Simulated assay, not measured.
Amino acid sequence: MSNDNVTNPGEIDPDEAIADAWAAALEEQKESEQREPGGETHSGMEGIRRMSPEDFSGTRPEPASDINLNMVLDVPVTIAMEIGRTRIPIRNLLQLNQGSVVELDRLAGEPLDVLVNGTLIAHGEVVVVNEKFGIRLTDVISPSERVRKLR
């Protein structure tokens, strides 16, 4: 039989000592938060009032012409050109090697999709400029149409 919870008379229980130390520290913190340098006490909540939805009813968003876009002009985005997609089982994927042909869902001559951060923003066609591939935009998706496609 173990006597772990029994202490000898005059001996301090370590768990009680820790609990007392925490209680004293918390009380000291509470007192220091309530005192200002002049010695006055306060709750720290003066000047704060509760807001209701009605308090915001008179606020209106800024007109679009007042919005400053300069802060987002340097945010990097990922732009990708997609020539097509397909779905294949993992079994067929593992069998692919050099020279394999993967059939896509797009016909030859169809425009490519231009995606920004995964969102379709335009269609275009492949061009070669100075021996580098590029894309000529043929149709840009309007913002309202992009929002409609999100729904």
Score class of each variant (00 low, 15 high):
Val126Trp: 03
Ser65Pro: 03
Asn97Ala: 01
Ala24Gln: 13
Ile67Thr: 04
Arg146Thr: 07
Pro53Trp: 07
Leu94Phe: 12
Thr119Pro: 01
Leu96Phe: 03
Arg50Leu: 11
Glu33Ser: 13
Met1Ser: 15
His42Pro: 01
His42Asp: 10
Ile90Leu: 15
Gly118Ala: 06
Gln29Gly: 04
Gly134His: 06
Val140Ile: 15
Ala108Trp: 05
Asn130Ser: 10
Ser144Lys: 14
Ile135Asp: 00
Leu93Ala: 13
Asp139Gly: 05
Asn70Ser: 14
Thr41Ile: 06
Asn130Asp: 11
Ala24Asn: 11
Ser65Thr: 05
Asp15Glu: 13
Thr59Ser: 06
Pro111Lys: 04
Arg148Thr: 08
Ser2Leu: 12
Thr86Pro: 04
Asn117Gly: 03
Gly58Glu: 12
Val101Gln: 00
Leu107Trp: 09
Ala25Val: 11
Ile121Phe: 00
Asn97Glu: 06
Leu112Glu: 00
Glu54Pro: 02
Leu93Pro: 01
Gly134Ala: 08
Met45Asp: 12
Asp13Met: 07
Arg60Cys: 03
Asp4His: 12
Phe56Ile: 07
His42Thr: 10
Ala23His: 14
Arg50Tyr: 04
Pro9Phe: 10
Met45Lys: 15
Ile121Trp: 00
Val127Pro: 00
Ile18Trp: 13
Glu16Pro: 02
Lys149Phe: 02
Val101His: 02
Arg136Pro: 01
Leu137Trp: 06
Val114Ala: 04
Asp139Ile: 01
Ala108Ile: 14
Val75Leu: 11
Arg106Pro: 00
Ser144Phe: 06
Leu69Gly: 06
Glu82Val: 12
Ala23Glu: 15
Phe133His: 04
Arg50Lys: 12
Val101Asn: 00
Glu33His: 14
Pro61Arg: 05
Asp66Trp: 07
Gly84Ala: 06
Ala25Trp: 05
Glu46Cys: 02
Ile141Asn: 07
Asn3Glu: 15
Ile141Gln: 09
Arg60Lys: 13
Val127Asp: 02
Gly118Lys: 04
Ala21Arg: 13
Ser43Tyr: 08
Leu69Ile: 14
Ser57Phe: 07
Leu73Cys: 10
Gly39Thr: 10
Asp15Cys: 07
Asn117Trp: 00
Ile88Arg: 00
Glu62Tyr: 10
Thr7Asp: 11
Leu115Cys: 02
Leu26Thr: 04
Asp13Cys: 07
Thr119His: 06
Ile48Ser: 06
Gly38Phe: 11
Ser65Gln: 08
Ile48Glu: 09
Arg85His: 12
Ile12Ala: 11
Val128Phe: 10
Ala80Ile: 04
Leu104Thr: 02
Met51Glu: 05
Arg87Asn: 12
Leu104Ser: 04
Asp113His: 02
Asp4Val: 11
Glu27Ser: 13
Met71Phe: 15
Val147Thr: 12
Ala80Glu: 15
Leu69Val: 14
Leu69Trp: 14
Ala108Lys: 12
Pro53Arg: 09
Ile67Cys: 03
Thr7Asn: 14
Glu31Ile: 15
His42Trp: 06
Pro14Met: 09
Leu69Cys: 09
Leu120Arg: 02
Val147Ala: 13
Thr138His: 10
Arg35Gln: 13
Pro61Cys: 03
Asp139Met: 09
Val147Pro: 01
Glu28His: 12
Ile48Trp: 08
His123Leu: 01
Ile12Gly: 04
Arg60Leu: 04
Glu16Ile: 13
His123Asn: 07
Val126Gly: 03
Asp15Thr: 11
Asp66Tyr: 10
Arg146Phe: 01
Gly118Asn: 08
Ala19Trp: 00
Pro9Tyr: 08
Asn117Ser: 10
Leu120Gly: 00
